[in-house]
């Protein structure tokens, strides 16, 4: 059983929902990332989504784009990010780690090399924002050959046919983008999310996560009523940004945001 599968089935047995924080690897400096990952786990993270910096993050809002820019000032590469996961695994062998990023750094590394090195380092899956299932066959093969799950996004614009196609290719969990827009957007409509989740659940037994637009404990709790997992990114990354000049305070700040979400989710 994969780490993701084990984690989701344990949560289900405990009657809990997964909390999935996102941070960008190397933000604000490469040296701090593994410590922040461990901090997130101790604050209640069930899965960690680790952003791979990219120069042109088209699907991200300004907060996560600036995180990429800070990391790229230190030339943080995909190989470096895989190295961070390897380091994290020395201290945590249970918490699933999913990489999130764009295709080009993977293209230049080579699909097979990427999948083999990532799996060897203890990565559990990858969400490649700009590769739909139509283009994703070769990458999917390389990843499944190495036991990695490919996490796919489903959007408010996805038709029932597309939802089925995506769910058929997806592994680990599927990630519903709750708003039309980029990461960090607002105006999350819970009723619309609920309707779409019903459609998705009729297409797959995989756990369904919801992200894009979850800003606070209250929203996280509300979304956790509907979904199997709550993904929170910009709300954390904006704290990293605010404290980039005082990096020793970042861990505590992330803990504060995440544990309030954890408590609110577990209380509902």
């Amino acid at each position: 059983m994969s780490r993701l599968e084990a984690r989701f089935s344990q949560l289900k047995a405990d009657g809990k929902k997964a909390l999935i924080p996102f941070i960008t690897a190397g933000d604000p400096t490469p040296g701090i990332t593994v410590d922040l990952m461990l901090e997130l786990v101790s604050a209640g993270a069930d899965v960690i989504e680790l952003g791979v910096p990219f120069s042109d993050p088209m699907a991200d809002g300004p907060v996560i784009q600036r995180a990429s820019e800070r990391a790229l000032e230190h030339h943080v590469s995909l190989r470096d990010v895989i190295g961070m996961v390897r380091h994290f695994r020395e201290q945590d062998s249970d918490t699933p780690v999913v990489l999130m990023g764009y295709l080009n750094p993977i293209e230049i590394m080579g699909y097979e090399t990427f999948a083999a090195e990532a799996a060897d380092a203890g990565v559990d899956g990858a969400l490649v924002v700009d590769i739909p299932p139509e283009e994703g066959g070769e990458l999917l093969d390389a990843m499944s050959d190495n036991g990695l799950d490919q996490i796919y996004l489903i959007a408010p614009t996805s038709t029932p046919e597309r939802i089925q196609r995506i769910c058929d290719a997806a592994g680990g969990f599927v990630y519903y983008v709750s708003v039309k827009g980029v990461t960090g957007a607002s105006n999350l409509d819970l009723q619309a999310v609920q309707r779409k989740l019903q459609e998705i659940r009729s297409a797959t037994d995989l756990p369904v996560g919801v992200g894009f637009g979850i800003k606070d404990a209250q929203t996280a709790a509300a979304v956790s009523q509907l979904a199997d997992a709550v993904v929170v990114g910009s709300a954390l990354v904006s704290r990293v940004e605010a404290l980039a000049g005082e990096p020793e305070k970042i861990g505590g700040a992330l803990r504060e945001v995440l544990s309030s979400m954890r408590q609110a989710m577990d209380a509902t």
Binding site: D130, A155, T157, R162, V177
Partner: peptide, 8 residues
């Protein structure tokens, strides 16, 4: 090669 929101 775009994110899912733009496919439709």
């Amino acid at each position: 090669f775009v994110s899912e929101t733009l496919m439709e």
